[in-house]
Write a protein that binds this DNA or RNA. Structure first.
Lengths: 231, 231
DNA sequence: AACTTATGTATTGTCGACAACCAACAGTAT
DNA sequence: ATACTGTTGGTTGTCGACAATACATAAGTT
């Protein structure tokens, strides 16, 4: 009876340990980030520590740390002794964000082609996009789009690239949330992705890079003026 | 009238109104960053808030915030309720850092060529490198090298790229400080740069990109094992 | 009226103390 | 000996109060 059960006795076997103890600053940061990305906190809104602390029923310390996290995300800026606010976007920054995204994704494509890793996982996201486009579901399409590109970067197997891309994508996300939705042709967006997957599978480097570049540039070319306001 | 002047004298008058108005967290962060980059705080060193607060004669709050800044710089990592330490480097991360640097610098070169902006400013850094190499001054060469690449990125006129490059270069700097100095041929490093400037001035895109790529890859190819230790 | 000087107000910056938490150790019963 | 169970030491997490700062505004002066 093999009493010698491997008995992998890790330091502690909590059968019911999944209750994670998330620090307040993380919870607050997540909440604020969501509020900013959803537009609930518009660009330029001022964030007052005391007010937020009162609203969220915590002290100012975790609020401060949460805001610092968002500052590192590039979503908030602080002016010493004056105030903190949701960082406004300039037209220039929008363009810059997309041009950086382009080189990240091109790098990912190159690495994927070199490593010859299979890219099957991308198909399902394409399918989801197609379905979302058919249903005219903007939210679902956006989510599937992000999942596709996230998976693309993940396949590149490069942790620093992933970290940089994630950080950048926060702004892209913000930009897309603000843009007038009518500007995007949902069907077109969905149709853009499968050729990329096919080029990867065919190991056609030139085509894959060209497609991913075009894809990014099309998004960048959308009218950015709707994003910028006066501050 | 109202001789009832509140009398409330100003809370306090500093007869020595110093000009420095820098928040403590910034001073602390700068100091710690310097200590880490110089190797005074080796990889894996644990950072205890209370200890640092005691040593630097400030409370834990600014220490915490400073450490958070360094965490965003990627120099420190926190393990909840356990401790904070200088983030160790893996061989893999070293390679990743250089490969990212490559695409940043290639992007900068491309933008400079497209904008046809003059690159005269790069010459002086080349001269400084040559002089430093001749004098066998490692510190000066490193500084001039950083100044050269910083200027290159600046000429690309892309604020997000600059921010990303700066953040990445912190790690590069760390890596270079740790590497055995004998591994670098000072004269060779100095000689690598002028051709890049010439290619830019000649508007030779292919050559410029090839040179900057090679330059980065040579650095990346140095033996990384000297960096990694056990943790 | 124009200019300078106080002073009030809103906000961030810093502090010291206490609570929560984890890891390792010691002690006890089996 | 082995497994379980306090307990303790060290570290981060959170809190409420006070100090410092900048800006706007009112008061006073010429």
């Amino acid at each position: 009876m093999t009493p010698t059960v491997p008995s992998r006795a890790p330091p502690h076997q909590n059968d019911i340990p999944p209750i994670e103890n998330v620090p307040l600053r993380i919870q607050v940061a997540d909440r604020l980030r969501k509020a900013i990305l959803s537009g609930k906190l518009p660009l330029g809104s001022s964030l007052v520590e005391a007010t937020l602390a009162d609203q969220l029923n915590v002290s100012r310390a975790p609020i401060r740390e949460a805001i610092q996290i968002l500052e590192n995300d590039g979503l908030v800026e602080t002016i010493a002794y004056k105030g903190k606010r949701v960082k406004p976007l300039t037209i220039r920054e929008v363009g810059e964000a997309y041009s950086l995204r382009e080189i990240y994704e091109v790098m990912a494509v190159k690495r994927i082609l070199e490593s010859r890793i299979p890219v099957d996982l991308l198909h399902q996201h394409c399918d989801q996009m197609t379905a979302a486009a058919k249903a005219d579901d903007f939210e679902a399409l956006t989510a599937a789009d992000e999942a596709f590109h996230h998976e693309l970067i993940r396949l590149a197997d490069h942790s620093l690239l992933m970290a940089s891309w994630k950080n950048l994508y926060l702004r892209i996300h913000q930009i897309m949330a603000i843009r007038n939705r009518e500007q995007r042709n949902l069907t077109q967006v969905a149709k853009n992705h499968p050729p990329i997957v096919h080029a990867l599978e065919a190991n056609d480097a030139n085509l894959a890079i060209e497609l991913i570049t075009d894809h990014t540039r099309i998004l960048a070319a959308l009218d950015p003026t709707s994003i910028v306001k006066e501050f």
